[in-house]
Design a protein around this nucleic acid. Structure first.
Length: 523
RNA sequence: GGCCCGUUCGUCUAAGGGUUAGGACACCACCCUUUCACGGUGGUGAUACGAGUUCGAAUCUCGUACGGGCUACCA
């Protein structure tokens, strides 16, 4: 399907008369990974582009998997990334509550309606009975039997049991679940905004549980009910949901009407080195997978996030946006405003994308290079302070940042790249100096010290001129003493121009460092 | 196994049937730089395979292969 005609058709068929409303609906079970943040991003960009609302809904219907702190953590991640919702459990909104655990009663009513209309039924099978069914029906051809239209006839449910027995079981508070009754022979199809026409045969879809024995809904019921009640117009989610979409479509048909159903878009997966990125492998890839660091409250295990690794939020959303989307030009660096302006769901790729950490680093480096020193100042200051370095003068810090930012891939690189501005080097790269050290150089630096001591114009270009004059007078090539001078001030073969460094650390400190290094070189 | 989705340089991707298949990351070389970077120039490198439709296919159709996802009282 061609992207442009497609977009035009959407415009005609779905005049934007309804206000655009989209949602991100995570379950608070742990760290928020790359794919999750990208889903947030695409939701956010789409909503802002169409002057709509972005809603955060917490899908906490699985009490067994609930993790304390995970909800607050999700808020923190969205705040850091600059993708804050318009409505959420925290700030509220017209369509609350936004936590599914607080909406339990609502789902029960819809489940009851489905039963009344014959689209769902009570199932009394115990977990042990289900396990036995899977074991008994397992064959080579069918390694994982489902609770489907053929199997349900052999199980204990309100379809197979006499009505009065069902009544009796219910009256006795027997544990039960409510399952959808999938039609035996129906083709369910829909038009996905990214992949076009997709269809399924209901005969091969199982009777999914809608309401669990603890009274909580499963995702399948909750997503449909809440998307309707919260007036969601476009539903974006990961491709892993595609196989259960027929269940959701049928529920829409039975409950609220297909005309009111949101437009679906199933986003391609972000792959790690071995398939789908997994939260559980968070630490094993050699690169972060979570937006921010996450500590598992049970094991105490810490997984470092992009933020703590030293990524700028601007770079993070930029690289995520480009993982599966592009604007058709060769532009790769986008601000958030540009993304809002240019994003379109039709240009999202349908194929999965393998995450490339090298490219991610490039994006971050680009963003660091483009930022003004003043913008990076507080981050760098916090970094240095955290390492015990007192930063007293913002003007000098800004000069330092401007000098070293081209050399920093991560925010955290600012430490190694600028520590010598604050502290005399503790170690010298002696291999770069000693083999070629001689008396002439020794004499040169002795004279340089005398010259510097009398110097009243401590500007980089003056220092450079003086340096070269003394070299010439001593019949030394400046190049032969420039590297030793750098090692004296920095400790290693890296960093901005030496005279810029000397200017910033000042006359006194420069002379001290030369003297100190001279001892190390000759010792 | 079944169902669904996908497949252009190693990676992310462009290319509305007609291009020497373009860009970016990474890699290599050179230039700039008396350090390291930045920057600049150039290079290696791809339409999975097979049929069909067409004057002409990366592009449309079918098949095959490969990859991924789903197949829970998880989301």
């Amino acid at each position: 399907m061609l992207p442009y005609p497609c977009a035009i058709i959407h415009l005609y068929l779905q005049p934007m008369s309804k206000k655009v409303r989209v949602r991100f609906a995570p379950s608070p079970t742990g760290g928020l990974h790359l794919g999750g943040v990208r889903t947030v991003l695409y939701n956010y960009l789409f909503a802002k582009k169409h002057h709509g609302d972005f809603i955060l809904r917490i899908e906490d219907t699985d009490q067994a998997r609930y993790v304390a702190g995970a909800e607050q953590y999700i808020f923190d991640c969205l705040k850091w990334a600059g993708l804050e919702p318009d409505e959420s459990p925290k700030q509220g909104g017209e369509y609350g509550p936004y936590r599914q655990s607080e909406r339990k009663e609502i789902y029960r009513q819809y489940a009851a309606q489905l039963i009344k209309d014959g689209h769902a039924y009570y199932a009394f099978d115990t977990p042990e009975e289900l396990e036995k069914m899977r074991e008994d029906f397992k064959t080579e051809q069918n390694p994982s039997p489902q609770y489907d239209h053929s199997v349900r006839q052999k199980m204990r449910n309100s379809l197979t049991l006499p009505a009065d027995e069902v009544k009796k079981l219910l009256a006795a508070n027997t544990r039960y679940v409510i399952r959808i009754r999938m039609p035996e022979n129906e083709i369910v199809s829909f038009s996905d905004m990214i992949r076009g026409e997709v269809s399924f045969d209901t005969a091969v879809v199982d009777d999914k549980v809608l309401l669990k024995a603890d009274g909580m809904p499963t995702y399948h019921l909750a997503v449909v009910v809440d998307d309707h009640l919260m007036k969601i117009t476009h539903a974006f989610r990961g491709e892993e949901w595609l196989p259960s979409t027929p269940v959701h479509i049928l529920l829409w048909k039975y409950l609220f009407g297909l005309n009111n159903m949101p437009q679906w878009a199933h986003l391609p997966l972000i792959l790690g080195p071995n398939g789908k990125l997994s939260k559980r492998d968070g630490a094993k890839y050699g690169f972060p997978v979570f937006a921010m660091s996450w500590t598992d409250p049970k094991t105490g295990e810490l997984t470092e996030g992009f933020k703590e690794k030293g990524f700028l939020p601007e770079a993070f959303i930029n690289l995520l946006a480009l993982l599966g989307w592009n604007d058709g030009t060769e532009q790769e660096i986008f601000t958030k405003d540009e993304l809002i302006e240019k994003f379109s769901i039709e240009r999202v790729h349908s194929g999965g994308a393998k995450f490339d950490y090298e490219k991610a680093k490039w994006f971050n480096h680009e963003w660091i290079k483009r930022k003004e020193a003043g913008y990076l100042r507080s981050e760098v200051k916090d970094l240095m302070t955290g390492k015990g370095i007192a930063v007293t003068d913002d003007n000098i810090l800004d000069k330092i940042i401007a000098l070293v930012k081209d050399r920093c891939t991560f925010l955290t690189d600012f430490y190694d790249q600028s520590i010598f501005f604050f502290r005399s080097p503790e170690q010298y790269d002696l291999n770069a100096v000693k083999p070629k050290w001689n008396d002439a150089k020794q004499l040169f630096f002795a004279e340089l010290i005398r010259n510097f001591e009398l110097n009243n114009d401590w500007a980089a270009h003056t220092l450079e001129n003086n340096f070269k004059e003394i070299a010439a007078a001593n019949h030394i090539k400046p190049g032969d003493v420039l590297l030793p001078f750098r090692i004296m001030l920095v400790g290693g073969k890296f960093g901005p121009g030496v005279f810029d460094i000397a200017e910033i650390i000042g006359k006194e400190e420069t002379i001290i460092r030369i003297k100190k290094a001279l001892e190390a070189f000759t010792g």
